[in-house]
Design a protein around this nucleic acid. Structure first.
Lengths: 199, 199, 199, 199
DNA sequence: CGGTAACCGAGACGGTACGTCAAGTCTTCAA
DNA sequence: TTGAAGACTTGACGTACCGTCTCGGTTACCG
């Protein structure tokens, strides 16, 4: 496993680990991904470069770990999508929120940085899927299964395809900046996805 | 416009321009994007570094221009999607071909390089949309309009949304390597997109 | 002959020649010798680089020619040392004047530049001796021969040695900045040189 | 002080320092001063360029330090001029030796390089006077004082002027290549200097 | 007196070296 | 014995100039 967000040695300094991850997140926000350097991270964290190289195999792994906390629930519990009983309404809420998050400058730089690393590093992509994508996708599946139980979605629906149809166009548009990430677009996606799987 | 694929001065050496673009394409294939350097491009092209810096504002712009030719038809004509009269059949053909292209090692490295640049450089993203995305999307729209005329797609279909639904999940899966790009996946996307817009 | 201060072709542009020499002199004064570049000369003179390379073989040659005018009499006549009939008095006058000239900021940079070139370029050194040193030394010899005729200097005096004794310590001190170039030093040199050759 | 021939930090690599100085000396001999580059020094010394820039402020300072060792006695003792009791004889010996040294190709290039730097860099000139000129001049003064004690030179002789009279013409002639550096010239200088200060 | 050849300003070209930055490795020293 | 500090080699960066080479546009001569 290329990243080690938790100490794998009792000797490891927790203080340094946190300082490095924090410094990395701050620097990505300040400079963007392209200008991020290991030296700057070490300097800002008040840490020797060797301490970074000792615990992470690549810059990408540091960046990844530093952003992992963004997706972690402080309470340790799993992520949960809203479930009012009305699938279409809930999906609109969630998709609009996702669109808004992409537009938030505080998330913009880090997520672009993360994508840059993942696109070019298959190992990191695997870790990403395991640590960040999977939990989120499982939460989405849970909500859709609940809808199936409620008879709002056919029982034989390919849930992963449904999720892809819903989210991929949104992510795509954000990555390539090919159009506005607004509520009408989010709503249109929800409508289209639901229509694609109606009986 | 940040890139200038054609000489903007009578003094510009066409020989050098072509050599630079060719060398860039070859090096991306050999080394991947991350290890591509301006010095290596200049050396391989038999050109002074200054000649690159004189005509392109950034490494990304050179990479972009070098890949632009991949999307250009040698005959100068526009791109055209197949039109046998059967929309579903044609879309399957096209989507399967797109999936196959993504799996082709010759395209893999360059297109990942291009995406890396585009994600982090809004200017380049704009040029990308204008020079590469737009012509392709227009060709897709033409095929869909033809289907509308043939009564295979409702006249009020939001063609751009249709295209997003069809292609975004494919691109997403390829970028993040989150699953196989095979014929069943392509077919499922076609089916889902068509069902989303059936009357 | 490595330098050609006068046009050797009727086609040569006198305007350009003068502009180049003037620009060179100005730039040496502004930047010092080390930062002087052919490109800057060409730019300041409003001249193509090729026009410089066409007429001078090296940067040193341009510098040399540009400084040659400093030693030329505007009236075209030769240099002449004062001759009041009192050798010691005249030598003091001349040596003090030489010391003052060395201290003049307007001469400082150019003459250092000239020396730098001459030290490292034997060809230039030869031209320097012919064009600048010889006429000056001949004028000094003339004054000393006049003194011999007046019985103020033995007839068998080695005039070149006398001149070296007089001027070399002055030049040395200026070049290496090893001491003040003041009147007492000049006077001491005159006294010593005269004593060295008194009967 | 612009040069630091001895490590000013315990962290400094003595191996690198010596390699740089040695490479510089060798390259000056091979290429001459004008073609000496920092890159070539670093390459020949097997050292990163940064290591040079870290410890020396300019190319001149490296050149200077590399030549400093030429004037250092390995035994740590000071320089001493011969003292047979016969001043004229000793001065002839020393001046002829100096002339011969100037003619030695192994000294030619480095000393010209040194002079080039010193002429154009007042700071370097100051260090030169302190580290190289002064010890040598003091040795000369000692020999002359010994002659004064022996009654071969008046007690009120201006020793520095005497030294200038003796050496400046020699150095001048060598720098400008204005004449042969042979024994007759050396002898003539000795004779003249002694005559200038005889009672 | 009209062609033409040399010279001109301009500036692109293939290069070399600059001085800086950062990468990843290695060494020293204090806690 | 870890970890901070930071020197080390390496190598790419983007810039400045080098000296050469066109490119059109004068300019002066020669046929």
């Amino acid at each position: 496993m290329p990243t080690s967000p938790t100490p794998n040695s009792t000797r490891r300094s927790e203080r340094s680990r946190v300082a490095i991850l924090t410094a990395t997140r701050e620097l990505i926000g300040d400079l963007g991904y392209a200008k991020l350097t290991i030296e700057a991270i070490a300097a800002r964290a008040g840490v020797g470069k060797q301490t970074i190289y000792r615990w992470w195999p690549s810059k990408g792994a540091v960046v990844f770990d530093s952003l992992l906390v963004l997706s972690e629930r402080p309470d340790g519990g799993g992520i949960e999508l809203p479930d009012t009983g009305d699938l279409e309404h809930d999906l609109r809420t969630v998709l609009r929120a996702t669109a808004a998050e992409f537009s938030d400058p505080a998330f913009e730089a880090p997520i672009r940085a993360l994508n840059t690393e993942i696109i070019n590093d298959p190992d990191l992509a695997a870790v990403y899927r395991e640590k960040m994508e999977s939990p989120m996708r499982e939460a989405k599946r849970r909500r859709l299964r609940s809808a199936q139980a409620a008879g709002q979605l056919p029982a034989d629906t390919d849930l992963d395809l449904f999720i892809d149809l819903l989210y991929a166009p949104l992510t795509q548009r954000w990555l390539l900046r090919s159009g506005p990430l607004d509520a009408p677009f989010a709503d249109a996606l929800v409508t289209a996805a639901l229509r694609a799987f109606r009986p």
